[in-house]
Design a protein around this nucleic acid. Structure first.
Lengths: 213, 213
DNA sequence: GTCTATAGAATGATAGAC
DNA sequence: GTCTATCATTCTATAGAC
């Protein structure tokens, strides 16, 4: 195309790369890693399989980039709620779980791909790091809550593992696909469970007498 | 071999089939599903790859049988503790989580294969059913606890998901491989977390002195 | 006219059935 | 051990920007 690589060409390449990543993310979210062949994602992005290698040295590199982008987005959102959100640590924890769960349910396919779906080993490595960051975020706010005397003493890492594990577990099971109205109830139950798990009083306060109705 | 299948031949075939399943289970526990090729499990069982197909119509069928046997054993053990164990529902829940976690840590490789390790899709289907049974067992005892007034009102399914999710989550992360003495502490923390999760531990900031001194 | 991004075919490796 | 299918990756000829 270009005699020398002009800015216009550079931009077009960059745009094509972005589109490839976006479309590949869609394919992964809709059909899973297993069906995201080079040919399939290339077709979704409107390019040939060969052209993919103009942008990425290997399929694994593309997969990792797809994962990183989506995972980073989730971590950022969760981190904002947990760290810079409003309220005390317990309130932020409740908000965090709610956001985590709600986002996962809204983009179920993507959440599945990020959290549990089998993928190539390069992605598995990223996933481990990703889950660990998630847990650290939860653990941090639990630690704050303990320090503030709002939560009983506990191992924040274990509690954090339980929190993310609970959401993941519910996502794994396709039968748990909730009806429209049910999703809200499920998120609320999950949040309540998370608060109990950390040892906090239920959200609907005046907790002392109402706890065991 | 026999012209017509005599009882002796029948017994020998049956024994070979059992040995094949047992050795294949070992291979899966030690090296994961990915390395459990037909050749590898056949070698471990002391037979040729071709002979495997005397006993199973496909590799997937063998894998499913391996999974079912091991999973059924775990479900049985957990079910015994949760259903026929000693004590009230809360005590049985604590025992169940402890047993679940301890067994998983003792046979980490097998637990990983059963709970989370990537496997062929036929096994994934079994895994879903297996995790569901696990959750049902937990949910049942939680339901009992609620009915008995020992636990606050909650969705037992969600709580059960959190319980098994927490153990699974901790197993997923290889970094969490605990030192010898640490495993006990981890199991204890997990059990405490599980009790809180079900609402059995103190929920307010006024903890009982005995539990959180 | 030149050069490179691109499409599409060729190649080669892997994995599983039997 | 052989046969087959399925991709990831590479090769090659074109088309279109400069």
């Amino acid at each position: 195309m270009a005699y020398r690589r002009t800015p216009a060409v550079h931009d077009r390449l960059r745009a094509a790369r972005e589109r490839l990543i976006d479309r590949a993310t869609d394919v992964v979210a809709e059909t899973g890693w297993g069906n995201a062949s080079v040919t399939a994602v290339a077709a979704a992005a409107g390019m040939s399989a060969g052209s993919v290698y103009q942008h990425f040295p290997s399929k694994a590199a593309l997969a990792v980039e797809v994962f990183r982008r989506a995972a980073a987005r989730e971590v950022e959102v969760l981190g904002e709620v947990l760290r810079e959100g409003a309220g005390d640590p317990v309130e932020r924890l409740a908000d965090g779980v709610t956001v985590f769960a709600r986002r996962a349910m809204e983009r179920r396919g993507l959440a599945h791909a990020l959290l549990v779906a089998p993928a190539e080993s390069a992605v598995d490595v990223e996933r481990l790091a990703f889950r660990r960051r998630y847990r650290q975020l939860f653990a941090e706010v639990v630690r704050e809550g303990v320090a503030a005397g709002l939560l009983p003493r506990q191992d924040p890492e274990v509690t954090a593992a339980a929190l993310s594990g609970a959401v993941g577990e519910i996502l794994v099971d396709p039968l748990a696909e909730p009806a429209d109205g049910d999703a809200d109830r499920l998120v609320a139950e999950l949040t309540a469970c998370a608060l109990r798990c950390a040892g906090a009083a239920p959200l609907t306060s005046a907790p002392r007498d109402r706890r065991f109705p």
